[in-house]
Design a protein around this nucleic acid. Structure first.
Length: 464
RNA sequence: GGCGGGUUAGCCAAGCGGUAAGGCGGAGGUCUGCAAAACCUCUAUGCAUCGGUUCGAAUCCGAUACCCGCCUCCA
């Protein structure tokens, strides 16, 4: 199994620090608003990664933080007049609901920044003691980048080289160096009631420190995988490395995996362009969680994903094809073997489905290859008449693969007695060549939201 | 200015030196009383352009063009 490691800029064989355990930390949401589909792409990718590792037999320990104190939150919470906890509690709950809608597994541990303040203070004290951090006049604490010679190793940049051409914001605080970043931000009156006591006076944690603290608290000073969007490489993850390794003297993370951003209809998502979507926006337009999941998942995580409504429609159609196949398998599998004429020879697809699926995903989660293997298999199997045993066996394999994909196996929708009666009445009318009557019934069923499919095995009612 | 990514059919998208996966859409067919659905078949002599290396290149090398990301809060 290979993953592209941002740290080395290469695909590397995945070798956990202490197999079969795998520790994963994924940067979670800042809960000041509903998650948008760009955020959700990251979480969908991380879900694929986690599910695949579990599928391969690793004992995954997944930690995802909830950032529930931060500049934007403080600003917004003041406007609403709510307490910080009420405000962030609402969006945290909505966030988890979104994950459920997309069938994204929740992390085993989801620590909140505000619940980790004592640990954060402890780590800052360590950094000060080791002379990697200093207290400014206003009671803020800053990390001294100069004190960490390896700074820049993740994002592969040298600070002095790039500052010249970059836009640089005016320094608002008493930092010694431009690029130093805050570990602890001293309270000021704009922060209102949001503050915690610390050895340096009242204030709140900086953004980067919480991830160092929460990841190491639950996964240890060194762990296997750290994920996030590509925008987090610098400065967020770079700063995490600096904080963590300076404090512990140990390598922080072995594999850094970053997902690319997405575009919507070919453009960068923005509210002013009207192409900014939250999950609820899409649900309101009639798309389902699994369709959105498919659309977000079907493109490689390191490529920019162009999220479009055409793409959603393609996802819907592709899923229908899968569902159709799986429903057919279920129908065949549940047929009594004794009454079913077995095909003359066993179904032997030209390529084994699971090994193709695995080898694609082994290669840095090549989801396109994996899905390609599945659809190729469907076409081959559709050409054949399958026996019950074969169908059952394929279904069992598919269930296993779906543990990775998380699209779900469809179940035959229950047909209400009234609908079934109409279906039978129509069939009788057709037999009697009373097509006027049978078409009337078809229209009536359509009104009730049911479509009739006349298959060689007889009519079948399906929900529209 | 620094660093990085991309350009494959109408759309999305694999491919990692051996002669273009897959999905959507489209066309044809099977089935059907007619439909619908489903299924099957077909759908890139060519992979941005120009050179080069090689027996062989979408794949490697060098230019060129266009697009994009990060360098500031950000998935």
């Amino acid at each position: 199994m290979k993953f592209y490691n941002t740290l080395t800029r290469r695909k590397e064989d995945f070798v956990p620090l202490a197999p079969p355990r795998v520790g994963i930390y994924t940067c979670g949401p800042t809960v000041y608003n509903f998650a948008h589909i760009g955020n959700l792409r990251a979480f969908t990718f991380e879900d694929l990664l986690r599910r695949y590792l579990e599928y391969k037999g690793f004992a995954v320990q997944h930690v995802m933080n909830i950032t529930d104190v931060e500049d934007k939150i403080i600003r917004t919470v003041r406007e609403t007049g709510k307490t910080l906890a009420e405000f962030t509690g609402f969006y945290t709950a909505e966030f988890f609901r979104d994950l459920d809608t997309l069938n994204i597994k929740r992390a085993h541990i989801t620590p909140r920044a505000t619940e980790t303040i004592p640990d954060i203070i402890k780590l800052i004290e360590t950094l000060i003691a080791r002379q990697h951090a200093y207290v400014a006049d206003d009671g803020s604490v800053y990390y001294s980048i100069q004190s960490f010679p390896e700074y820049g190793k993740l994002s592969h940049r040298k600070l002095d080289e790039q500052l010249s051409g970059a836009r640089v914001k005016q320094d608002e605080y008493a930092k010694e160096q431009m690029a130093d970043f805050a570990l602890w931000k001293a309270w000021n009156e704009d922060d209102g009631p949001v503050k915690w006591p610390s050895p340096w006076g009242e204030g709140r944690p900086g953004w980067h420190i919480e991830c160092s603290v929460m990841s190491m608290k639950h996964l240890g000073p060194s762990f296997d995988i750290h994920c996030g969007g590509e925008d987090l490489v610098f400065p967020h993850h770079e700063d995490e490395i600096a904080q963590s390794e300076a404090a512990t003297g140990k390598p922080f993370v072995k594999y850094w995996l970053h997902n690319a951003h997405l575009l919507v209809e070919g453009k960068k998502m923005s509210k002013s362009l009207g192409n900014f979507f939250t999950l609820r926006d899409l649900l309101a337009k009639g798309w389902t969680g699994r369709e959105i999941r498919y659309a977000l998942l079907s493109c490689h995580y390191r490529d920019p994903l162009n999220f479009t409504f055409d793409g959603l429609q393609a996802a819907r159609s592709a899923l229908q094809r899968m569902d159709e196949f799986l429903l057919k398998l279920q129908a065949v599998a549940t047929t009594l073997a004794a009454t079913e004429r077995r095909p003359p020879e066993g179904f032997a697809p030209s390529k084994p489905i699971q090994s193709d699926f695995d080898s694609a995903l082994d290669d840095d989660l090549n989801i396109s290859g994996a899905l390609g293997a599945l659809f190729e298999f469907i076409r081959e199997a559709n050409k054949r008449t399958l026996g019950p045993d074969e169908a059952a066996s394929i279904l069992a394999t598919w269930r296993r693969l779906d543990e990775v994909l998380g699209f779900g196996i469809p179940t035959k929708s229950e047909v209400p007695d009234g609908v079934q009666a109409l279906v039978e009445e129509r069939q009788a009318a057709r037999k009697a060549k009373n097509f006027k009557r049978s078409d009337e019934i078809r229209d009536e069923l359509a009104k009730q939201g049911w479509v009739i499919e006349d298959t060689p095995q007889g009519p079948r009612a399906k929900r529209k």
